[in-house]
């Protein structure tokens, strides 16, 4: 008996070790990051020069330094914080409402294949409609204000998240299903122990898309009529012909987007660390 144990045991250890080793890509990655930074600095210097020399009209391309000055002035006068808070706040509230609703609706729709089949055409119809087009009607219903802003945001980011949740809740692994059946799993057990956890990579891919859509929704809602938010700043600066001010608002929106995206990705990695095909899922 012992003679047959050894070859098996020998195969166990190296396998585990091999899989735990970190990739040795760090140095190459660092070099790439350096190149990216250099390229960014180079482009900024080029823009500065091009604008100074008026190769390009300053209405189109303000000097990066004037954008920086606008940003500096905006922060030192304290006018940005209110708008950033408003934009981030409504984005998160709208996104949160949509995410919770999408998960619940997705869970309910997927309860039976029949229900999903009956409702799916509606989802497709709404998904094909550019949700931005609904914004004027929502404003007509709810007036200008936070309420309509949040509803617009939620509407815009709801469908991509719903579709991903539905996709995730589908049973993709036939043998897993048969395993559960062989143990006599109930529908609820199948949902709780297999479909729900298995859907998480898809749900998170949906959230990552959703947060981007939510920010788009926020800016549109702010364009259409709002008292505060970075979209409002953008419109005000446009009215004042202040091009550096508009670029400053764009930079702030970009930073907000990056931070929101980073936070979502971070949570995703913590929760669905076990999924090794995250990038494939996101499509």
């Amino acid at each position: 008996m012992t003679s047959m144990v050894q070859p098996e045991a020998a195969s166990v250890v190296p396998d585990v070790e091999r899989r735990r080793r970190r990739p040795r890509m760090n140095l190459a990655r660092l070099a790439d990051a350096g190149l990216t930074t250099l390229l960014a600095i180079g482009l900024l210097l080029l823009a500065e020069h091009a604008s100074n020399e008026e190769w390009v009209s300053r209405l189109i391309l303000p000097t990066p330094s004037s954008v920086w000055d606008a940003l500096y002035a905006g922060f030192s006068e304290g006018i940005y914080w209110k708008h950033i808070r408003s934009t981030v706040g409504s984005t998160l509230v709208g996104f949160g409402i949509a995410a919770v609703t999408a998960t619940i609706v997705g869970g309910l729709l997927s309860a039976s294949q029949r229900v999903e089949r009956v409702f799916f055409p509606f989802i497709v119809a709404f998904q094909t409609l550019p949700k931005i087009a609904i914004a004027p009607i929502i404003i007509l219903w709810l007036g200008f204000g936070t309420q309509s802003k949040v509803v617009i945001i939620a509407t815009i980011c709801f469908f991509p998240m719903l579709v991903n949740t539905l996709q995730g809740l589908r049973i993709r692994d036939r043998e897993r299903l048969e395993l559960a059946q062989s143990l006599g799993a109930s529908r609820w057990q199948l949902f709780r122990y297999i479909r729900l956890p298995d859907s998480l990579p898809y749900v998170f891919a949906g959230l990552t898309i959703g947060i981007v859509f939510a920010l788009i929704g926020t800016v549109i809602a702010e364009f259409l009529g709002s008292k505060s938010g970075l979209g409002v700043v953008l419109i005000q600066q446009q009215a004042a012909f202040n091009v550096p001010g508009m670029y400053a608002a764009l930079v702030l929106l970009m930073i907000v987007g990056l931070v929101l995206n980073f936070v979502t990705k971070y949570i995703e990695r913590r929760v669905v660390f076990w999924a090794n095909d995250l990038t494939n899922v996101a499509s």
Partner: peptide
Amino acid sequence: AFGMVFQSPALLPW
């Protein structure tokens, strides 16, 4: 009352 093993391990990765 029975156990089942398939061609794929069908483990739960989480």
